[in-house]
Each structure stands twice: as C-alpha cells, then as structure tokens.
Design a protein around this nucleic acid. Sequence first.
RNA 1: GGUCCGUUCGUCUAGGGGUUAGGACACGUCCCUUUCACGGAUGAAACACGGGUUCGAUUCCCGUACGGACUACCA
Length: 535
Amino acid sequence: MPLVHNARRLDIIRSPRFLSSLTPPNHRIVKLSNQLSVVRVRFAPSPTGALHIGGVRTALYNYLFARQKGGTFILRIEDTDQGRYVPGAEDYIIEALRWVGLLPDEGVGFGGPDGPYRQSDRKEIYQKHAHELVQLGHAYYAFDTPEALDVQRQAAEHFTYNHLTRTALSNSLTLGVAESKRRIEAGENFVIRLKVEPGRSIHINDLIRGDVVFESSELDDKVLLKADGMPTYHLANIVDDHLMRITHVIRGEEWLPSTAHHVLLYEGFGWQATMPLFSHLPLIMKPVGNGKLSKRDGAKFGIPVFPLGWKGETAEESFGGFREAGFLPAAVVNFLALLGWHPGGDQDVFSMEELIQLFSIEHIGKSGARFDYEKAKSFNQKYIHAMDNAALAALVRPLAEAKGYQVSEAYLEKAVSLMKERVTFLTEIVETGYYLFEPVREYDEETLQKRWNGDIAAVFAELIEKVATFDLFKALELEEAVKTFIQEKGVKPGDILPLLRIALVGTMKGPAVFETMVVLGQEETVARLKAFLKR
RNA sequence: GGUCCGUUCGUCUAGGGGUUAGGACACGUCCCUUUCACGGAUGAAACACGGGUUCGAUUCCCGUACGGACUACCA
C-alpha cells in the first residue's frame, strides 16, 4: 500500500461527485479490509476541565457522521497526563454529551467490546506496543533527562530531537543495545521515541484539506512513552484508533501538524492498510480580536463558552454554560453545526434528523469560524418560539419551581404561550415574566408620571368594577367591552390601556393586555387592579 | 524563527470561469401593533492584494500581505 498518493488522483477522490458516488463513502477502506466496512468514529477528549464548546462541535460532527453512515460513535477518555487530570471532568463530558443529545454507542460509561475506553486503564497495552515498535526498529530508548534537553534548547536556538541531533544524545542508538538494556534494568528513567527517518515526503489525504505534505526531515522524534510509563497522545491515540477499528478521525485542526507522525506510527506498526481517513476541523475563534476561543473569553465577554456550568473551588473558577443561560440543546446543536459547516443552499434551521441526513465532511469549511453569540441567541429565540406549549412548559417547570412557583400544568402552558414570542432564553420566561407567577414588584413610575391623574383615576376605579362584574372573561370580549367603556367615558384608549398594562404587569413591555388578563384570571386581575389603585 | 493550514458583506456562510454574487445574524427604514416582541417589506453591506492562464477570473495557478495552528516526557 503506497503511502504517497498521486496528487492528481487526490483531486479526483476529493471531488464531490466522486465522494458522493461512494456507498459506503469510504471506498478505500472498504477495499482495503473486509472487516472495516462499517464507519467507526470516536470523540476523544481529555478530562482536564469542562468540555469546551469547540469540543462539543467536534463530538457533534463525529456523531452526525456516524449516525448518517449507520456507524458507531465512541467516547474515549484520553487521560494519560496525570498532572492535568481534573476530578469531575469525565462526568462533565458525559453529562454535556447527554444534554446536547450526542450519546455514544460505546465508551466510558457506555460499555462496548473494545474497552477499557479510558486510556489510563490501558497502560500495559501502550507499553507493549511501544517496546514492540523498538523491536521493529521504528523507535528507540532515550535516556536524556528533561533537564538535559532544556540545556540543549538553551544552547541551540531551536533545538529539536531529530535524526540530526539524536546521534549526539543519550539513547539506544548511540549507546547500543547492551548498554541500553543495562540502564533500563538498573532502573534508569527512559522514554521511547519515534525514530523518524529523513528524506521522505509524507502525504496526508485530509478529507477537508486535500493533499497535505510533510517532509520527514523536518519532523522531530516524538516521545511515545513517557518516563512515568504513560504514553503520550501520539502513541495512545494511534494504538487505540487501531485497536478500536476507527475508520475516520474527525478532530481539531491543532492536530494537523502531528498527523505526519501519526501516519509514520501506523506505518511502523504495519497498520497502514487500516489507517483511518483524517479530517481536520477549522477552529472556533474569539468573538472579537485574534486567536481561538478560550475559556477566558467567557468571562471577558460575559457569554457562555461551555455547554454546562462548572463548579470550581472558587467563584472565579466557576462559570455558567449554555444550559444555565437558558439555551435549548437543539438550538446549540444547530448553531454549532453551522459554525464551520453548511450543506449548501439557503436553509439555516436544521433539526438533528436533518443534520444527520445532510451532514457531509466535504462541506466542512477550511477557515476558522468566529464565535458569534448573537447568532446563537437568535437560534435559541427561534427554537423557543417554534416549540409547542406543552413541551416548553415541561422545560420551564423546573425553572419555575426553583423560584418557588407552584402552578398547574394548564396555567404554565398558558403563561409560556404568552411569553415565548418575546424571550431569547428559557430563563426569561420566569424572570422577565415573573408577573405571571407572583404579584407585580414595581410599577413603571416614569410612565405613571406622564399618564396618571385624578380624572383618570376616577375612570380607572369604575373600570375595575366593570372588569370585576364582567361575565364572559375572554380576551376578545374583554377588549370590546373595555374599549366601549373607554369610549362612553369620553377618554382615549391611549389614556387607559397603558395604565391597565402597568397595573397588571408593572411594565410597558409584555404580552397583550387582554390576553394577560385572561391568563391571570378574573380574580387575580381584579386583585391587581385594586392593589394598583391603592398603591 | 521554522513547519503546516487558511482568506466571499461586521459575523456565520451559499455559489463558482460569463450571476443584478444568494441566505442568515446584527444594523437602518417602513408596515402590522395604542406596549414589548413575533411577523412582513425594504435598505446599506463582501469575492484581501499583485501577477499569470483564459475571449473572460471572485472562481484555476503562483507570489505578497494578513490571519490561524503547531513547534513539551500537554492533549
């Protein structure tokens, strides 16, 4: 199997017509191995804290691809750096995936035939493979301490551990097998490094970027197995992807530079025939300014950049997520899906089912996508608006109860129907719309100054009587009756209606007055009007 | 610095050798509405630059500029 592909052939392979003509899409893999005819993808986060929203997007793309192809979506936890491990992060990842509806088929917390799916539980597997690679002549033992390498880095401007420098360093290549064995048996610290041979062009046929070429002479001899016996990302990732029969690697662009090493690893192990196809996603950038979206941007711009909230040790280390902000998972999914991908055409609202159906790796963009919170909000607003009252009420129920509001199902549905057209966040229904659940807290004094006077007060008092004795308490009938009353009194609707609104909800912003009256009910309406008059 | 990746309205993007370069968000105006919002209409707003190739380039190629990622015994 030639590793280096003909560039022209790649153009053909990458053309949409060619790609869409393939069923299943991965012709190469199907051809190369009978066992790999089914798509298997993985989402492999590191439990170093809350899962970044970019990670959620990576998970989403993997999920959509797997679902579309009838494949398997695997969750693997890459916790090989004991120093950066954060307790709770693993649960957070699973909860976040659950919230956005991206449930893995296999993985930590979900079981499966290829476990364990947590890399710290697979230490021996990596060690075995690392030593095997040394036997195969594609890796070697290195005894240089981190301190010794620091010295090298300071001496040389840009020191790299590679085919040039390794001949003057302390490793099994310079020391010989016997001496290396002696040192290892004596308990000396060592790492295993990939032996990158110079003089080769390594081609990566990235499904998003096409043919990407790296010269092996420019590559460093990456550490594969650390002194503590744990593998680095590079080794663990390749070994696991192979063992878990991964067919497509869909990951962030930050991995593109090390993909050449990964290809070398597949080759070194003799696994090139089943090497997965790579797709490197563009990064999500800061809302303003340069660089990729970071945790700091959340606090800086006052926006969520994580799916769920996180409770850190201090207030500063704690933050809310999209869920706490009042987002609907479906809106977040829609927003995220379009951050770097679009199926073509003018549609921009997609359900998960549509996304699964329409998703295609070829339509993923190449350039970084700026995180546009306004757009996210707009999706949320649309989704809340489009939701039916019962479903929305079910989501609002816990928010209402958290505020101590005890209301019937029927009432909550009516309240929700009144509010849903004018909120962006779920939370606003019980916050902005608190007056549907408890008495008015304060009246809009500014408007009152302009409109309230003795004459009006007299008319208003009479109006309360009218409302209190009104038979058919329905919006249309009420409106007609009140407007007739206003006309009879010789005042203008504009003199009374705004005051009626303020008496009922305290503010000039809000749902239609007569509909609000109906939802509140006659008793409560009258009580509020009287309370207003007596204030 | 080196390696690699990228560049269509402010933002997310569609499109692609000949188009009035389309949609969405945000913004302006108007309509609806005696509130706010929803909705509807409408406006302003883009192919980074320079060379090629071509009858013709925003689209293909090269370069420049700018942006990004990587450059750890982190992932």
